Computed example of a mutant assay.
Amino acid sequence: MIMQGFVRFRVPIWVRRWVTVLPSVVVVACGVDITQALIASQVILSLTLPFPMVAIVWFIGQTRIMGNYAVPHAVVALAALAAMLVIGLNIWLVLRT
């Protein structure tokens, strides 16, 4: 729903539902252990989380992009610290496995 405002076209609700449900149906149909699939999906999500975090931290502090809605530098610094913490934890996770 949020992306529709940026890309300026609507995705039908049935397409959104199929796109979100189909991968889990395929995993279950293939006989994969559900618990292991859930853990793997969460690891993948945690590894991809820093990409939007870094983009958001970059954009929220840009006055030319955000205009009057740009956040103060202190908030940007806290958000950058949170992003670095997530990135550091992901590096630790990868090196540990």
Rank of each mutant, 00 (worst) to 15 (best):
70 A>M: 07
82 A>V: 13
28 V>W: 12
19 V>I: 11
56 I>L: 14
33 D>R: 09
58 W>G: 05
16 R>T: 01
75 V>H: 09
89 L>D: 07
76 V>H: 10
8 R>D: 00
25 V>H: 09
73 H>P: 07
15 V>L: 15
66 M>F: 00
71 V>T: 08
20 T>Q: 04
91 I>G: 02
53 M>T: 00
17 R>Q: 12
58 W>S: 14
58 W>D: 13
52 P>D: 03
16 R>S: 12
18 W>E: 01
38 L>W: 01
78 L>P: 11
95 L>C: 04
26 V>R: 04
79 A>T: 06
17 R>H: 12
45 L>N: 09
44 I>M: 05
59 F>V: 15
93 L>V: 05
2 I>D: 08
89 L>R: 05
83 A>Y: 06
35 T>V: 15
10 R>Q: 02
41 S>P: 04
11 V>T: 03
8 R>E: 10
79 A>V: 03
82 A>H: 00
42 Q>F: 02
65 I>W: 03
83 A>T: 15
24 S>W: 12
14 W>P: 05
51 F>P: 08
50 P>A: 04
94 V>R: 05
35 T>R: 13
7 V>S: 08
90 N>P: 01
69 Y>F: 14
2 I>W: 10
1 M>T: 06
52 P>G: 06
16 R>H: 08
5 G>T: 01
93 L>E: 05
20 T>G: 10
88 G>E: 04
12 P>K: 06
41 S>N: 02
61 G>C: 01
47 L>Q: 01
36 Q>R: 14
48 T>Q: 02
8 R>M: 00
6 F>R: 00
61 G>W: 07
59 F>W: 05
29 A>G: 09
33 D>H: 11
20 T>M: 13
77 A>D: 12
13 I>L: 06
68 N>D: 14
53 M>F: 04
7 V>W: 06
5 G>P: 06
49 L>W: 00
93 L>I: 02
51 F>A: 14
47 L>V: 02
32 V>P: 07
27 V>W: 00
39 I>T: 10
74 A>E: 13
58 W>Q: 08
55 A>R: 07
2 I>H: 02
5 G>K: 07
47 L>F: 03
44 I>V: 14
50 P>R: 02
28 V>P: 08
63 T>I: 13
88 G>S: 11
75 V>P: 01
68 N>Q: 14
6 F>Q: 03
61 G>E: 08
84 M>W: 03
46 S>G: 13
80 A>C: 09
84 M>S: 14
38 L>Y: 02
76 V>E: 09
22 L>T: 15
42 Q>C: 06
54 V>A: 14
34 I>Y: 06
78 L>Q: 09
32 V>D: 07
39 I>R: 07
82 A>M: 13
45 L>V: 00
4 Q>C: 05
86 V>P: 08
43 V>S: 04
24 S>V: 08
67 G>A: 11
31 G>Y: 11
94 V>G: 01
